[in-house]
């Protein structure tokens, strides 16, 4: 089943494609924008920018640590470097460089991780960023954004460049359904309610937003009105939206393509526990690595489906 089909959504572009195009389109408006790549620019799509602005695109080879350090230096000298790689290589390989050369000094570096989650498919677990959000959130001062579709990725790319300070933007590899339109609002730290409902709230980000809308459509057929919130910014988290959801719907399910530890679920649970404790359930990868396979088969096998979200809603409503 195509993601978003049950919710009546049409399949659009992948987030990484939207990111690469947006970067190129913003190149003139942001003359200090430069890209630093670890030789995967054709995968992360920064090559779209680098081809249009060749003097502003730097490929430093398969050397992520140095790649992030070079970006730190460029930022210290006034540039807005966008440094990108596969999410796991960027966050896991160059973690200390992000910490020392970006986060601690508060450098205006934009970190973009493509190929996030298990939906990258056949390349297998070594290439899958499933802990990147936790790693990014663990560094003080970094904004962490996980957009749900091509349009919000485009808007997030602009918001990221306008924001002064370090940002981590997570992009997926596969095509996802279009949820937003060009005139939609996207503000860092402000969640979007993409479907209203009063019986339960599903808080999701990334590709799980489309999947959650599918789940909400199935739930509606059973007479359950689910609110779906696109929590595209994990840090800073939109506490008001969470408190409102807890207060008005009394039940929360969090769905993400990430490990349980340190992801959106952990962050939302922290807010709920502190402000308005209500029953919660979680749809995520738990505590395991995935494997090679086709993206949709993997999502099925590892429980990142509309059925899994529906089951979590049923469970949380039974408590």
């Amino acid at each position: 089943m195509t993601i978003g089909a049950a919710a009546g959504l049409k399949l659009g572009k992948a987030c990484r494609d939207a990111f690469g195009t947006a970067l190129k389109d913003l190149g003139d408006e942001f003359p200090n924008l430069v890209t630093v790549d670890g030789d995967v620019g054709n995968s992360t799509r920064t090559e779209v920018f680098a081809k249009a602005f060749p003097s502003r695109g730097f490929n430093v080879g398969i050397a992520e640590s140095n790649m992030v350090g070079v970006a730190g230096g460029l930022a210290a000298a006034g540039k807005i470097p966008v440094v990108s790689s596969f999410a796991v290589f960027l966050l896991a390989n160059a973690y200390d460089q992000i910490r020392m050369s970006v986060a601690y000094p508060g450098m205006n570096v934009k970190l973009v991780g493509s190929h996030a989650g298990i939906s990258i498919g056949e390349d297998g677990a070594s290439q899958m960023g499933i802990e990147d959000v936790a790693l990014a959130c663990s560094m003080p001062g970094i904004v962490v954004v996980v957009p749900a579709d091509a349009t919000s990725t485009r808007l997030a790319t602009r918001a990221m460049l306008e924001h002064v300070g370090p940002v981590y933007l997570r992009c997926g590899r596969i095509e996802v359904p279009d949820i937003y339109t060009a005139d939609s609002e996207f503000k860092i730290g402000k969640a979007n309610t993409v479907r209203d409902g009063k019986d339960v709230t599903i808080i999701a980000n990334g590709l799980m937003v489309g999947i959650s809308l599918d789940a909400a459509a199935a739930l509606a057929a059973q007479g359950v009105n689910a609110r779906v919130i696109d929590m595209h910014t994990i840090k800073p988290i939109d506490e008001a939206a969470i408190i409102k959801a807890a207060t008005e719907t009394g039940r929360i399910v969090v769905a993400e393509e990430h490990l349980m530890a340190g992801g959106l679920g952990s962050v939302v649970a922290g807010v709920v526990a502190r402000t308005k404790p209500v029953p919660m359930e979680f749809v995520n990868l738990g505590d395991r690595y995935a494997e090679s396979g086709d993206p949709h088969g993997l999502l099925q096998k590892y429980g990142l489906t509309a059925e899994a979200v529906v089951a979590a809603v049923e469970k949380v409503r039974s408590r």
């Binding site: 140095n66 350090g69 070079v70 460029l74 050369s101």
Partner: peptide, 12 residues
């Protein structure tokens, strides 16, 4: 980490 930062400064 310093030399990478230096490369960034020099490029900028």
């Amino acid at each position: 980490q310093g030399l990478s930062l230096g490369v960034g400064h020099a490029l900028a």
